[in-house]
């Protein structure tokens, strides 16, 4: 299978690799996937409670090149966005940007879920209720 140039680029130079403190009240953590499925993504965001802007995003991913690229791209995209804007990112946007083949679409779904899960975690820390449609589906 050939990878798109963008997938290769994210794989070779993953953006925003790392971890933020889970204990920080302004940090939302999303951990989605499962080792037996071959994909686990951890996405973390530091969100300014005043402006609701995502000031920092970090990821770590266990998974194929497309899963790594999807989560790396997700951190790039959410940075500087508001929570509302970040929640509007759809997996299909990721598929298009990375030219993912059909067998790799689940990687983009997982990345979308990771964004939702991280924001959901942050909202929970701040006592905000998470509406059903914002919850991670996987």
């Amino acid at each position: 299978m050939a990878y798109s140039e963008k997938v290769v680029d994210h794989y070779n130079n993953p953006r925003n690799v790392g971890s933020l403190s889970k204990e920080d009240p302004n940090v939302g953590t999303g951990l989605v996937g499962a080792p037996e499925c071959g994909d686990v993504m951890k996405l973390q965001m530091r969100i300014n409670p005043e402006t609701q802007v995502i000031e920092e995003a970090k990821f770590k991913t266990f998974g194929c090149g497309s899963a790594i690229a999807s989560s790396s791209l997700a951190t790039e995209w959410v940075k500087g966005k508001t929570v509302e804007e970040a929640l509007a990112i759809k997996n299909t946007d990721i598929v298009r940007e990375l030219s993912l083949p059909p067998v790799k679409i689940h990687c983009s779904v997982l990345a979308e879920d990771a964004i939702k899960a991280a924001i959901g975690n942050w909202k929970k820390k701040h006592g905000v209720e998470v509406p059903e449609h914002e919850k991670a589906s996987h």
Partner: peptide, 20 residues
């Protein structure tokens, strides 16, 4: 780059984690 490696190093038993 692996969240699992990080968890293992933190002493978390990965087989016992409830995955979403």
């Amino acid at each position: 780059l692996s969240p699992l490696y990080e968890m293992a190093k933190e002493g978390i038993d990965i087989s016992k984690v409830k995955w979403q």
